[in-house]
């Protein structure tokens, strides 16, 4: 038994190495002085300095943040209302609606990208940050909805009924009782949707027009023009930012959990 246990532990540690080594390597080599070689040739910060003077990069970051904020707001409002609507009411064909709203989570992203591209071209809407934002909101509605609905299912309906019995209107009961109880799930959904939007490449790739380059599109075009230490430096920053977001969401969960 102990031999088996030891074997499982080594296999697990090997998996962990497989998951983390490539990211660690990227970060380490973002400080490498050599432009072309993968041999260590001394420490430098020059790739970070080059990034800092790249104005197109800052424009891309701004675009990404704008799209993420607006699409997350839309997706949150729509997703929360859909979660409440589907969980608290019963109507014919509900199962079909349930399944349909989950579709963006399962269909290939490329499919979603081309469908949106086709749609915008057909109705003659020029591709821009607006079309990108619309696309992001579409795939983020189910993300928010699933998270909020899971929490809603665990809530005791008696709480809202008690509020109604004490004379609250349906809206007051929702606003003052249900919504505060849902807030951890909503915050979770917001963080998830925001991250998914910030990271999205495929749907953005198909729905972005000239001048609406987001950060992932910029990263992609940098990668396509060849491996370079600037990309390593940018990657290191992105890794750091996502770690910070995870830490934030963990802290939020702990605060809300109490």
């Amino acid at each position: 038994m102990t031999g088996q246990r030891r074997w499982l532990r080594s296999a697990s540690l090997a998996n962990l190495l497989f998951l983390y080594a490539p990211i660690a390597v990227l970060v380490v080599f973002s400080f490498n002085a050599s432009r072309l070689s993968a041999r260590w040739q001394g420490f430098t910060l020059q790739w970070y300095q080059m990034l800092a003077s790249d104005e197109a990069l800052f424009a891309a970051v701004q675009n990404s943040l704008l799209v993420a904020v607006v699409s997350t707001m839309i997706a949150t409002i729509l997703g929360v209302s859909a979660a409440v609507g589907l969980e608290r009411s019963h109507f014919p064909g509900q199962r079909l609606v349930d399944g349909a709203l989950l579709l963006p989570l399962v269909i290939p992203e490329v499919m979603m990208g081309v469908a949106l591209l086709l749609f915008f071209v057909m109705i003659q809407v020029p591709l821009s940050l607006v079309t990108v934002t619309i696309g992001h909101a579409a795939f983020n509605v189910p993300v928010v909805m699933v998270i909020v609905r899971a929490r809603l299912r665990k809530l005791d309906p008696a709480l809202e009924e008690a509020a109604r019995d004490l004379g609250a209107t349906a809206w007051q009961a929702f606003r003052r009782v249900t919504l505060p109880l849902l807030s951890p799930a909503i915050i979770g959904g917001v963080l998830m949707a925001f991250t998914v939007s910030l990271d999205d490449f495929i749907v953005t790739f198909f729905t972005a027009g000239p001048g609406s380059t987001t950060l992932p599109l910029k990263v992609y075009s940098m990668i396509k023009s060849g491996v370079s230490p600037e990309i390593n430096a940018l990657s290191a920053i992105l890794v750091l930012v996502s770690m910070a977001l995870i830490a934030l969401s963990l802290v939020m969960q702990r605060v809300n959990g109490k």
Binding site: V25, V219, L238, S242
Partner: peptide, 17 residues
């Protein structure tokens, strides 16, 4: 955690390697 890191970055890591 690695899953939260941008997919392009994770793919680029393998190009680099």
């Amino acid at each position: 955690i690695p899953f939260w890191t941008n997919f392009l970055v994770r793919t680029y890591a393998w190009m680099f390697i």
